[in-house]
């Protein structure tokens, strides 16, 4: 009798890339819901616009590259990029800004390097930095959180949509009137004006650790991160190292200069620290790949983030930190190879 020959092992993996990416999206969903609760529906428009342009430009470039389109779109990696980019952008971002970031992320950061698996840079961060440098003003449209005691002048769903699509605000409302500096911005400005951190913190925008509202989003981001760790979608090395990279220098600085620098807790719960630790830096394609390498990579991101926040020209430094460490990955991977069984410690 004849038999069909197959390749072994006969057993097949239980998960797939699509499943992994979907889990990442599920893990972000609660944080997204909290985001919308505090800052209005802007995030949803960002997600929608980014997803349309990420998927669209990926499909287009796959066609141009003569590669099958459907399997690549089904892996959900473009959607994850879109969602991370949407999280990075202010809630009120004109659609063309989001679209530019999405196209840059997909075309330049991802496919010009060879597509999924070959991109050197984290596509979402590359896209974000492209628009941050190109449209700096649009990147400041952050809103105050919807809290009972703040004079909150939020936009309705339709009004937000009107701004995102056509740049139109309701009669008598200006962008300056509804946007606020982020806590990181306020701290930056405050410290520059030689005020002490404790005083800056008395601003009603601040909560227990970081910005009000933001703290809650960050809690849910951490929750999503723990979910991914529990499911084995990500491993502990990068998140722990990123957090250590931010917290260790922040702790040392706040011991050396108490009151003059932000507390470690503020660093942890402001800006994109937690999002970076669990969702951005953990992008496996552009991260270092050995356990030791991932510790080094993560710590570098944390450290550079802290350094940019402390001395740099931007309030947050996550995106730059990630891109800088992306460049270091080949070297890190080469020098952090695990010792292979049967080889001496020296090799």
């Amino acid at each position: 009798m004849r038999f069909r020959t197959v390749h072994l092992p006969l057993l097949r993996p239980k998960t797939g890339v699509g499943e992994v990416m979907r889990q990442v999206l599920y893990a972000l969903a609660p944080a997204a819901a909290v985001y919308v609760w505090f800052f209005g529906p802007g995030l949803l428009f960002n997600v929608l616009v980014a997803a349309v342009f990420c998927l669209g430009s990926e499909a287009l470039i796959l066609r141009i590259r003569g590669m099958p389109v459907a399997p690549a779109l089904e892996d959900y990696s473009a959607v994850v990029t879109a969602v991370l980019l949407a999280f990075a952008l202010p809630p009120l971002t004109p659609w063309w800004v989001t679209a530019t970031g999405s196209i840059f992320a997909m075309v330049f950061a991802k496919h010009l390097y060879g597509g999924l698996g070959y991109n050197v840079f984290n596509p979402a961060m590359a896209g974000y930095v492209a628009v941050l440098l190109s449209f700096p003003v649009a990147m400041t449209a952050w809103l105050p959180p919807r809290m009972g005691d703040l004079d909150y002048e939020g936009l309705s769903l339709l009004e937000s949509l009107g701004y995102v699509l056509a740049g139109r605000l309701p009669e008598g409302v200006t962008l300056d009137a509804i946007t606020r500096a982020t806590p990181l911005d306020s701290v930056r400005e405050g410290l520059r004006e030689m005020r002490i951190f404790a005083e800056i913190r008395t601003n009603p925008l601040f909560g227990d650790f970081g910005g009000r509202g933001w703290e809650w989003i960050d809690n849910f981001i951490a929750l999503g991160g723990f979910w991914l760790l529990y499911r084995g979608i990500i491993r502990w090395h990068i998140p722990v190292a990123v957090l250590a990279g931010v917290l260790v220098p922040a702790t040392i600085a706040s011991i050396l200069q108490p009151g003059l620098v932000p507390t470690p807790g503020f660093h942890l719960f402001s800006g994109a620290t937690l999002l970076c630790a669990f969702f951005i830096a953990t992008d496996p394609v552009s991260a270092a790949t050995s356990p030791a390498g991932r510790l080094l990579y993560g710590f570098g991101i944390g450290l550079i983030t802290w350094a940019i926040r402390t001395w740099g020209g931007y309030p947050d430094g996550v995106a730059f930190a990630v891109l800088l460490m992306n460049m270091a990955v080949p070297a890190i991977d080469r020098y952090t190879r695990p010792r292979i069984a049967g080889h001496g410690r020296s090799t």
């Binding site: 999924l116 496996p284 394609v285 790949t289």
Partner: peptide, 22 residues
């Protein structure tokens, strides 16, 4: 079922390799 896709360098293979290869 799932088609073969490019490696995303997740490193799960290195976790299970009994020889500690990557």
């Amino acid at each position: 079922g799932e088609p073969e896709r490019p490696c995303i360098r997740c490193g799960e293979c290195a976790r299970v390799c009994p020889v500690r290869l990557q």
